[in-house]
Design a protein around this nucleic acid. Structure first.
Length: 232
DNA sequence: GCCACCGGTGGC
DNA sequence: GCCACCGGTGGC
């Protein structure tokens, strides 16, 4: 009997997927898919997952059997795309870079306008401290943030901004592999400060997830108690 | 009583 | 006809 739990990138960290092949009976050879929450709770169906995760995770495009996120939610479109599932939606910049970047290097960042990071309640996350003095058609901080994020995805080379020549004539001297801002450098101090920010965010997330789990357990206990009193 | 496992079936 | 979903049950 094949039994293997694997990570599921389309679900939050800690969730595992398991596929169990039926070994006997009329349905021998078919398989059942199960998911396990970080706390070990087992889920046999997508409705079960949706009920448990609520608004915390959008499962509209989640394919229960494959464990992958798909582009459409109809049965027909899903079947057509089965051999080419969409990557998880948490890396939109990576998916969009190929077509937009190669066409017009100077203006592609404008096309990312409107994309914004947000938490599970759709509340926009706080803006970052960015290098000053943007160069290019859209001087907004949002645009620069998207440009830096995409530059980090495009190459493992250092991200340092544009040369002074680009400031004088961006149409001629702009370096498409760098974000459209004045040259800047990142120091060890900057890195340490950002590590602290990330560390704080992780702790907050951990506390929120723990509180959520405890609340769900309490809710389940309350519901169970009500049912038991009614049946007496 | 729990749960792994398979069967039944409604929706497509 | 297929299969996602969930009910039922036998083994522990």
């Amino acid at each position: 009997m094949e039994k293997r739990r694997s990570d599921c990138p389309a679900l939050p960290p800690g969730w595992k997927k398991e596929e169990v092949i039926r070994k006997s009976g009329l349905s021998a050879g078919k398989s059942d898919v199960y998911y396990y929450s970080p706390s070990g709770k087992k889920f046999r169906s997508k409705p079960q997952l949706v009920r448990f995760l609520g608004n915390a995770v959008d499962l509209s495009y989640f394919d229960f059997r494959t464990g992958k996120t798909i582009a459409g939610n109809t049965r027909a479109s899903r079947d057509k795309r089965e051999a080419r599932p969409e990557p998880p939606r948490r890396w939109p910049l990576v998916r969009r870079r190929a077509s937009i970047y190669h066409n017009k290097p100077l203006f592609w960042e404008k096309r990312l306008k409107g994309l914004r990071s947000s938490d599970v309640t759709e509340e926009s996350l706080r803006a970052m401290d960015l290098p000053r003095a943007c160069i290019g058609p859209d001087p907004s901080e949002d645009c620069l943030l998207w440009a830096i994020a995409s530059a980090l995805h495009l190459s493992s080379a250092p991200i340092s901004g544009q040369s002074t020549s680009a400031e004088k004539n961006p149409g001629v001297w702009i370096n498409a592999s760098q974000p459209p801002c004045r040259s800047f450098s990142v120091t060890e101090q900057h890195i340490r400060e950002q590590e602290l920010v990330v560390d704080r965010a992780r702790r907050s997330l951990e506390e929120a997830l723990t509180a959520d789990t405890l609340a769900r357990i309490a809710q389940t206990k309350r519901e169970t108690g009500v049912k038991e009193r009614r049946t007496r």
